[in-house]
């Protein structure tokens, strides 16, 4: 049929576009594995276990916000019994001193941009 060329062309464009991620990764020759994050020197354990923090840090921070802002509670007892002051700036950023070396790497990797720094001061190398 006369439309054969159009259909073949359309199919090729469709397949090329749908497989774009494969071509992009081939062109960039990257393995695209998870980014390395710089952990605080001299610290063994975060507020909770590393696995817990990887999966639930966002939920934990929201719980902390609710606790301190809405309920006026500023003590957090971790699962291993240690107590922490609920404070992003004081507790979290006390160890994680550079957002660009820690937070930003995974956040950029998965394309999220939490609104932390619209209120809190962003810890950076150029204060």
């Amino acid at each position: 049929m006369a439309d054969g060329a159009k259909v073949a062309g359309g199919l090729m464009v469709f397949v090329a576009l749908a497989c774009a991620p494969i071509w992009l990764v081939l062109a960039r020759r990257s393995t695209a594995s998870q980014p390395e994050i710089e952990l605080p020197v001299g610290q063994k354990r975060c507020v909770e276990s590393a696995e817990f923090m990887r999966q639930r840090h966002a939920a934990l921070l929201v719980d902390w916000r609710d606790a301190v802002v809405r309920e006026g509670l500023n003590r957090y007892v971790a699962s291993d019994g240690r107590e922490f002051r609920i404070s992003l700036t004081g507790t979290c950023l006390g160890c994680h001193t550079q957002a660009s070396a820690f937070c930003d790497r995974c956040h950029a990797y998965i394309g999220v941009s939490p609104e932390c720094w619209s209120c809190h001061v962003r810890p950076s190398e150029n204060p």
Binding site: I22, V25, A32, S33, Q34, Q55, A59, C106, Y109, I110
Partner: peptide, 18 residues
């Protein structure tokens, strides 16, 4: 689910890189 999105992306990128 409180899933680790970075782990999911690494897995998906494994599929994308064949």
């Amino acid at each position: 689910s409180n899933s680790d999105a970075a782990a999911i992306k690494e897995f998906v990128m494994g599929l994308v890189t064949l």
